[in-house]
Design a protein around this nucleic acid. Structure first.
Lengths: 339, 339
DNA sequence: GTGAAAGCGCTAACAT
DNA sequence: ATGTTAGCGCTTTCAC
C-alpha cells in the first residue's frame, strides 16, 4: 500500500524521453535544450516529483546523514547539544539519526552498528558512562568512519573533540567557594571512569592546593545523581556538621544536596555553601539560586557538527585532530554568597 | 576516501560463488548446502560484512526509518516523548530521524519534505505553534504517508492521535484551586491557535462554571512563557492585588509567575495560590513546590510509536484513526496548599 | 541534444 | 544446490 512516489523513470515514460534526459533536465545540464528542460521541469513540478534520497545515497556513496550517539536525550545539556547539532546539520542539508545508549555499552555498540549499516557519513559521539571497552569505536575509526567526540570523549581515539574545560571550571568554582570563606569543601563526584568527572575532581583538588588547603580524601564521595544523594544521605549528613562547602559534579546533584540539607535545618549558604556544574535551568529556580558554571551545550553541538563537516570535506583521516575547548563561565549566585 | 565496506559482491568474488548464493547463505535460505553456508558465513563474519541498509531500503521500498517533527528538542516534555519513541523504535529495529521546526512553519514544511525525500516509512508529528496552514501535512497524508500526531494535533487530518486530556487536566487543577479557597483565578494561557491551550482554557472555564463562578474574560491573559511573564509583568501585577489564584498553561510560566510575585512580596500560596501544567522536573525544585498535573511524555512517545508501527503493518489508510487520551494526574503540592 | 548501458548493493523470480 | 537476470531510482560515461 505504499504510495509509489513518481520516479524519474515514470516521468521519462510519460514524456516519451529517456531517464537520462529527465535527470539532466532537472539539474539544468547545459546539453539539454531550453524547450525540453522547461517541459520536463514543469511536468515534474506538476506531479510533485521528489528525488529519492536513498537511491541518490546508494549511487553517490554519500548519505548526507550523520549519526549521533548520546547517553540520554532527556537531559538539558544533552538535548541542547543535539539542538545545536541539528540546527547546523539542517542548514547544510544533512539529516541526523539519533540513538540513545541509555548508558548501556551494549546498546551503544548496537547503535553504532546500526548507524554504520545505514551508511551515515559520520558520527557524533558522547560515550556512555560505563563504556569500559571502546573497541567498537576504535574499529569503526580505523575503518575510516569520520568521528567527532563531544563531552565524554574516547581517549584511545585520535580524532576531533569538543569538550568543556572541566578542570578549569571546577578549579574556578572551587576557588570561588574558598573565596567565600569555605575551608572544608565536600566534593560530590562521579565515576572514576568518566573523563569529565575526573577533570572536575582534579580541578577541585588543584584549587585547594592553590589555596594551601590539604585535600582530604574523606571529602570526596562518588555521588552524581539525585538518587545517589538519597542513597548516601547518611554519609552526607554525617559530614554536614564539619563542612562549610559542597562542590557537586553537576547541578541536579547539587540541588538534591541543597534540598536534603535544608530539610535537616541547614542554612544555605550560611551553614554550607553549595555549588554545581552545568548551569541547568533549574539552577535559577532552586532557592537559593545555585552558583555553578555555564556549559554551552548548544554551541558545543554546533561546533561538533561543524568539525564533522570539515572532516567530511577533506580526505578524512589525514588531518590533525582538533580540540575545541569551551571555557565554563562562572555564575555566582545565592547558594554561595549572602544576599 | 570513503572506506568501501565489503559488499555481497566482494564476498562472492572472493569465494568464487554468485552474489545470490552469498545473499541466500547469509539469511539461512534452506536451498544452500550446510557447507557453503558455513563457509560463507564465517568469511562474512571475518571481513566484518554488514548489509547496506540503503540498498536494502531501495530494493524493498521500506526504509525502517521513521521521521519525527517536533517544535524543539530542548524541552523536558518533548525530549521525554522522543525518548519514548526512540526506545520502542530501537527495540523494533527502526531508526529515527528527528527534525525540529523551532516553531517555524516554513522550516516544518522543509523538514517534512526532507523526511519524505528520505523515504521514511512513517511520520510522528507535533505541530508547530504558528502552523496556520497544514496544507503540506494534508497532502502528505493524502499521498498515503502513515502519520501519527502527538500533543499538538492537526484537526484537519483524520489519523491516529496521542494526546493529553488537557481539558480534564485543566478542569481538575482549577477545581483544586477552588477547593483550596480561590475565588478569583487568573489564567495565563496560550495562543488561540493551539489545541492544547484551548482545551486547557476550556477546562479552566468549565471548572469555574462547575462551581458557579462566572468566568471573567479579564482574568485570561495570553502569556505562555517566562519571557511573556516578564513582558506582561505590569498587567499581571496590576491584577495580583485582586486575585487569589493563578492557573498557568505550563510549569515554566507558573514558575516565572511565582518568582515575579515573590519578588513583589506576595506569599505563595497564602496570598495567591499557583498551579501549572506538565509536571516539569522544576516543579519540585521551586519553593514552594508547584502543584501541577503530570503529563506522561515518555509513555506518550511509546504509544505514538506503537500506533505508527500498527499502522505500518496494516494497509495504511484503511483503518480507523485511533485516539489515545492520556489522563493528566493531579499533583497537589505546596504552591496551592498550606504546609 | 538525446539515448543506451552500466553500476551503486541487494534480492527474488526464474533458470539449470 | 547454485547461477543468471532484472530491477529498486538515479547518474554518468560513452555513443550517435
Amino acid at each position: 500500500m505504499k504510495p509509489h512516489l513518481t520516479s524519474i523513470n515514470d516521468i521519462a515514460k510519460a514524456m516519451g524521453v529517456s531517464p537520462s534526459t529527465v535527470s539532466r533536465a532537472l539539474k539544468d545540464h547545459p546539453d539539454i535544450s531550453e524547450a525540453t528542460r522547461e517541459r520536463i521541469k514543469s511536468f515534474a513540478h506538476k506531479v510533485n516529483y521528489r528525488p529519492n534520497a536513498l537511491a541518490l545515497s546508494l549511487k553517490s556513496q554519500v548519505s548526507h546523514t550523520i549519526g549521533i550517539i548520546i547517553p540520554e536525550i532527556v537531559h538539558h545539556f544533552f538535548s541542547s547539544i543535539i539542538s545545536g547539532i541539528e540546527d547546523i546539520a539542517y542548514s547544510k542539508g544533512y539529516r541526523v539519526m539519533i540513538c540513545q545508549s541509555n548508558e548501556d555499552p551494549e546498546r551503544e555498540k548496537m547503535n553504532l552498528q546500526a548507524l554504520i549499516d545505514h551508511r551515515v557519513d559520520g558520527l557524533l559521539v558522547c560515550m556512555s558512562k560505563n563504556s569500559n571497552d571502546p573497541g567498537h569505536f576504535i574499529s569503526a575509526f580505523n575503518n575510516q568512519t569520520p568521528m567527532v567526540f563531544f563531552d565524554r570523549i574516547c581517549n584511545e581515539i585520535d580524532t576531533d573533540r569538543v569538550i568543556t574545560d572541566d578542570f578549569n571550571g571546577a578549579r574556578q568554582i572551587t576557588s570561588h567557594l574558598i573565596d567565600c570563606g569555605c575551608k572544608s569543601i565536600l566534593h560530590l563526584g562521579t565515576h572514576p571512569g568518566l573523563n569529565v568527572g575526573q577533570e572536575r575532581q582534579q580541578g577541585y583538588t588543584q584549587a585547594l592546593k592553590d589555596h594551601n588547603i590539604e585535600p582530604d580524601p574523606g571529602l570526596i564521595i562518588q555521588c552524581d545523581t539525585p538518587a545517589d544523594v538519597i542513597h548516601k544521605k547518611e554519609q552526607i549528613l554525617n559530614l554536614a556538621g564539619s563542612i562549610d562547602g559542597i562542590f557537586a559534579v553537576n547541578d541536579f546533584t547539587a540541588i538534591a544536596a541543597i534540598q536534603l540539607l535544608q530539610l535537616k535545618g541547614y542554612k544555605i549558604p550560611e551553614d554550607i555553601a553549595v555549588a554545581g556544574f552545568g548551569d541547568d535551568p533549574a539552577a535559577v529556580i532552586i532557592h537559593p539560586t545555585l552558583t555553578t558554571v555555564e556549559q554551552q551545550g548548544y554551541q558545543m553541538g554546533q561546533e561538533a557538527m561543524q568539525l564533522l563537516l570539515d572532516r567530511l570535506k577533506k580526505s578524512s583521516q589525514d588531518q590533525a585532530a582538533q580540540v575545541k575547548l569551551f571555557q565554563a563561565e562562572l555564575k555566582k549566585r545565592a547558594s554561595t554568597m549572602g544576599a
